[in-house]
Design a protein around this nucleic acid. Structure first.
Length: 1083
RNA sequence: GCCCGGAUGGUGGAAUGGUAGACACGAAGGACUUAAAAUCCUUUGGCUUCACGGCUGUGCGGGUUCAAGUCCCGCUUCGGGUACCA
């Protein structure tokens, strides 16, 4: 009887189906094990031979765990929403649900042939209403939650509303889009609409105006991970930046937890690394740079000011302090001015607006002080003292202050609060008298040109920057704003307005792609300056597109000596470069390394970079120049898609504010529409749906959810796919908990695996599920590459020349379908029929054969190198396919598919079969196995067990081959050996294993057998073949008893005549004996 | 640029610091057969030798070690990820 794989496989596939062999139920007597595949998007082209690789690997592990006594959950489903089906619908008018159903049916048919142990009763499809009901439900929960940074978890938004009513934003530490400040009264005075708008700033699912990746060709917004190098990942269409009002998920709030969680999961280092990079945590400081007050720098500068005299330009007229102090005190002055005492307020009313005949300023900085009122023209200061000015200590301080101010040429008059309140008119008169005592300092003509600015005018604001290199603060020679920064408008001086405008328009025109491709330095000077808060130097503020608006604060402090981008910019615009590291050479490039000894850095001089950085940060915090901050690269996930084929949002609008549907209204089903295109008004396709509104007539959301929505919590739904009350019941979740083994491709490292971990953590915060991380262990299978074949056409002729003769002609290489090539030999007849053009083709052969060339390329239709698993199953059977996929090489490694090698594993199965049958005779006996046979078996058990646990399936297939080859050469067909072997093989080749298991007389399924256990006793060797090496080179072997001691081995080796021959009479310097392993003689 | 993987026969690949090339494919030779398929047996890294054997050999150059494909340092090169992330 021959190995008839077709018959066998069909028989057992039917048996498994009828007997529900793979049906899984909760069984608390057994330990659970959850094995999950990344579910596929059912594309129109069906599965190729690369797709099942991971599925086979997970299937082997599932079956192995089951044989080990675990209750294994191993489900499968479809990621059924997606762009390709909709693009196809646009082209053909076919409803995406129709094509999706068709594709799923095709996938299922292909998967079924391979003999997977999926519990198909648990199948899910993300496009089915009873599935996406829970996607919508989760979205509602996110809308109704905010993230508390103190508790580090999501909390109900109702708590936040209560807090706002009681205390406003005071003392709250909440993840938000922008930092808002308001008190309880302000909150209560807001309209409902305003309150809703404010709440969006905190909700985990929120609507906001954001800069998004807009893809015109696809007519939709895309998430960051759906865009690569400025084009869409799917389709490769151009993507541009736009501001749009979009739904987003506050993933960024979870950044730190997403990072921390990586330490608790068993993933490969490279995958964890990718996630770490994507989250992009950087520790640094946010530093405030105040702007230089924009005074006219005309003649008539005040020579008595403490302004930096070393500068060549003339000092501006109204500087009354130095820039460093101005920067430090600026905020303080502003704050004082906004909260005046009653007396100050009264007096100001009488002084303001030239009521005295002269201009007064209040809380204007002079040197290190902020006097209450000052008339600069007459250098007269008016102070109003409160109660605390009566203390001795205060009197001393006031005196010191008066002295300094008087030295600067100011006269000071003081009044008490009481005086101002009771005798306002008398005080005004006194002030007028004082004013008349001195000459005006101002040359009238200059005053007309050089108009001083008061505090609130102009750009009296500040720029905040984020830096990881606070230690380089002394090397800042300019600042750069992102062109999109809101500060640009404020900072641009009138002279520079046109230039800046031009630059920004030009930048906007450039697509992301152009920016990346053409990385030439560009930028424009804003006309404004800022003051370095540590060194006090004045630095110009530039605008350039090398600074990103979306990261940090959208502004940087540029340290050209130690940042290559800043360096390029400084060189291009001829800006100063100050080296900060001892001995660094910055004549040609910057020194970006974070090591060395600081120079040119004031109080940081002589310190190492690391120490200096810490010291600088401490200084910044202590002097209130800024604060220490952690920044993340991870952005919130944009969650709206202007497309049809996705989950509808459970959202309606009142007065343009979003509200959630009641949970009882879920699922909100995707409506039918006439065309899958945007409306004439440019609204998303759902704008075409009739009656797309609530029962009360409020309009529903037009956008749908993105592809990752449905795949973010699908692993939970498999636990209880038919529960219509909950996403998953507590009971089912407590039992199955999370995925023990997740297998899939690396392409999901930054998308799906971040989103689903976020989604999972959110549900965990709500107490709905019991595990913080969804996927305990994750294995990435490598890509299966294609192996293309080529034929060589002689130029201008319909003649093809075989590979090794092609150099004699001028030829063109043409891809040829790998399915009509075998072992690189072309099937000429099939080739002629393959394409009508080749019907009459002629061939130049070698040895009567046409040899094709080959190359490893991506597996794709256009390369004609796609191999369909159906064809392999048809020709060799599913067991051969499974074994061969595993035999190709290590699971995680990319490798080319070459059908050539498949005969080897097929032969192996036939040889295994031949241990059972010869012609019509059943060979299996009940004889007691020999020690040799037992050794072969147990060696194999040991190896296979180890290999499965380590996902080294290619070596397990080899081990099976070795085992069968050895049994074959012993002509051994004993039940005691073959039965465990069959069970051992069952995870890999379930059909043939099931057949042989039954042939051996078992009635139950091999799936429910017990995995054999290695008995080390059978592996003990009585003799060991010692390799004898000289200076590390093995010369010969000697066989010695295993129990021989080190000394005896050495003696035996030294006495051997071959050793004597090798030594040639010389005395060995040293003899190393590794017992049971090797002998090395050093001469 | 940065990060992460690789590099071993004609091919896919194997090798807890201890006999490099297991296991397969392919190729060559042979057996069986009218023939083919299937199956079985032998050989198969390179160079050299009639042979025993010898020399050489895991991308390149150093190093550690009794012993290195494996560990360390410096390169070359291929693949993947990521990007003006401050």
């Amino acid at each position: 009887m021959d190995y008839n794989f077709r018959e066998i496989e069909q028989k057992w596939l039917a048996y498994w189906k009828i007997n529900g062999t793979y049906k899984t139920v909760i069984d608390k007597n057994k330990l659970k094990y959850y094995v999950l595949d990344m579910f596929p998007y059912p594309s129109g082209s069906g599965l190729h031979v690369g797709h099942p690789l991971g599925y086979i690997a997970s299937d082997i592990f599932s079956r192995y765990k089951r044989l080990k006594g675990f209750n294994v959950l191993h489900p499968m489903g479809y990621d059924a929403y997606g762009l390709p089906a909709e693009q196809y619908a646009i082209q053909t008018g076919q409803h995406p649900s129709v094509t999706t159903k068709k594709n799923i049916a095709r996938y299922r048919e292909q998967l079924d042939k391979i003999g997977f142990c999926y519990d198909w009763d648990r199948e899910i499809r993300t496009c089915e209403p009873d599935y996406y009901k829970w996607t919508q439900w989760a979205f509602i929960q996110m809308f109704n939650s905010y993230y508390c940074n103190d508790l580090k978890k999501a909390r109900p938004i109702s708590e936040l509303i209560k807090a706002f009513e009681l205390q406003g934003t005071k003392d709250l530490n909440i993840a938000s889009t922008v930092d808002l400040q308001f008190d309880a009264e302000e909150w209560k005075s807001k309209t409902v609409k305003e309150q809703q708008e404010v709440l969006l700033n905190y909700r985990i699912a929120y609507l906001a105006d954001l800069k998004v990746n807009w893809c015109t060709a696809l007519g939709t917004v895309l998430a960051n991970d759906e865009v690569s190098e400025g084009v869409s990942v799917r389709g490769g269409y151009q993507v541009e930046q736009r501001i749009m009002r979009q739904w987003s998920l506050r993933v960024s709030a979870y950044a730190q937890r997403l990072l921390d969680g990586l330490n608790t999961v068993d993933w490969t280092d490279s995958l964890k690394e990718t996630q770490k990079n994507w989250i992009g945590r950087s520790e640094g400081a946010e530093i405030k740079f105040h702007l230089t007050p924009a005074l006219s720098k005309g003649d008539g500068a005040d020579q008595n000011s403490t302004f930096d005299q070393s500068r060549n330009e003339k000092n501006p007229h109204f500087y009354t302090t130095n820039k460093l102090d101005w920067g430090l005190l600026h905020d303080h002055a502003k704050a004082m001015r906004s909260e005046p005492t009653e007396a100050e307020s009264n007096l100001w009313e009488m002084l303001r607006g030239n009521k005295t005949g002269y201009k007064f300023r209040r809380q204007h900085q002079i040197d290190k002080f902020i006097p209450d009122f000052v008339c600069l023209e007459k250098k007269l200061i008016v102070e109003v003292d409160g109660e605390n000015h009566s203390s001795d200590e205060q009197i001393e301080l006031d005196k010191a202050r008066t002295n300094i101010l008087e030295e600067l040429g100011y006269r000071i008059i003081r009044f008490s609060n009481e005086d101002v309140k009771l005798l306002p008119q008398i005080i005004i008169e006194k002030i007028k008298v004082e004013l008349s005592k001195t000459e005006s300092l101002f040359n009238k003509t200059i005053v007309q040109n050089a108009v001083p600015l008061s505090f609130q005018e102009g750009q009296g604001d500040l720029i905040e920057v984020f830096t990881t290199r606070a230690d380089t603060i002394y090397g800042v020679t300019f600042m750069v704003l992102a062109p999109e920064s809101e500060l640009v408008k404020q900072l641009t001086t009138s002279e520079k307005a046109a230039e800046v405008e031009n630059y920004i328009t030009a930048t906007k025109k450039r697509t992301e792609r152009e920016r990346i491709a053409d990385r030439k330095v560009s930028g424009v000077f804003s006309g404004s300056y800022a003051i370095n808060p540590v060194s006090g130097t004045e630095i110009p503020i530039w605008i350039s597109d090398y600074v990103l608006a979306g990261y940090g604060t959208g502004a940087i402090m540029a340290v050209p000596a130690h940042d290559s981008r800043d360096y390029a910019f400084a060189k291009h615009f001829n800006l100063p470069i100050i080296p900060l590291i001892e001995g660094c050479d910055i004549s040609n490039e910057s020194l970006d390394a974070k090591e060395g000894i600081m120079i040119n850095s004031g109080f940081l001089n002589g310190l190492t970079v690391k120490v200096a950085n810490e010291k600088a940060k401490k200084y910044i915090v202590e002097n209130e120049i800024g604060n220490v901050k952690v920044n993340f690269r991870l952005r919130d996930a944009i969650f709206s898609r202007q497309r049809y084929w996705g989950e509808p949002f459970p959202v309606y609008y009142i007065d343009e504010m979003p509200y959630m549907l009641d949970e009882s209204k879920l699922p909100l089903e995707l409506p039918e529409i006439d065309k899958f295109l945007p409306t004439e008004k440019g609204e998303p396709p759902l704008g075409r749906a009739k009656n797309w509104q609530t029962e009360d007539g409020y309009p529903l959301e037009f956008c749908t959810m993105p592809g990752f929505a449905g795949s973010s919590a699908y692993y939970l739904r498999y636990m209880e796919p038919k529960n219509d009350k909950e996403l998953v019941s507590r009971e089912a979740n407590q039992y199955w908990r999370n995925v023990d083994l997740y297998i899939g491709g690396t392409e999901h490292a930054s998308g799906h695996l971040v989103y689903s971990r976020f989604w999972n953590k959110f549900l965990f915060d709500l107490g709905l599920i019991c595990e913080d991380e969804p996927f305990k262990k994750l294995v990435n299978q490598g890509m299966i590459q294609g192996r293309s074949n080529f034929v060589y056409r002689v130029k201008d002729r319909n003649t093809f020349v075989s590979l090794n003769l092609k150099n004699q002609f001028e030829t063109t290489a043409i891809h040829v379908d790998v399915n009509i090539v075998s072992n690189d030999i072309l099937d000429i007849e099939k080739f002629k029929n393959w394409n009508p053009d080749y019907k009459e083709a002629e061939f130049i052969l070698e040895d009567g054969k046409y040899h094709c060339g080959w190359a490893v390329e991506k597996m794709s239709k256009s390369m004609y190198n796609v191999v369909n698993p159906d064809d392999i199953v048809e020709k060799y059977g599913a067991d051969t396919l499974r074994l061969y996929e595993m035999f190709l090489g290590p699971l995680e490694q990319s490798k080319p598919w070459d059908t050539n090698g498949i005969d080897g594993v097929h032969r192996f199965l036939k040889r295994l079969w031949s241990l059972f049958y010869k012609d019509e005779n059943f060979l299996v006996s009940n004889e007691t196995p020999t020690a040799d046979e037992l050794k072969i078996l147990h060696k194999t058990i040991k190896k296979i067990t180890f290999d499965i646990e380590n996902f080294s399936y290619n070596t397990s297939v080899s081990a099976f081959m070795i085992c069968v080859n050895e049994l074959f050469s012993l002509k051994s067909s004993k039940r005691a050996i073959l039965e465990p072997l069959v069970i051992l093989l069952a995870p890999f080749a379930p059909h043939i294993a099931e057949e042989l298991y039954h042939v051996l007389g078992n009635d139950n399924s091999v799936c429910d057998a017990s995995f054999p256990i290695c008995n080390e006793d059978y592996l003990i060797e009585s003799a060991i073949k010692y390799p004898i090496s000289f200076n590390g080179k093995v010369r010969f072997m000697i066989e010695l008893p295993a129990e021989m001691s080190k000394e005896e081995v050495e003696k035996a080796a030294m006495e051997n005549e071959l050793t004597l021959k090798q030594l040639e009479g010389k005395k060995p310097k040293k003899v190393i004996v590794v017992q049971g392993k090797i002998v090395n003689i050093v001469i």
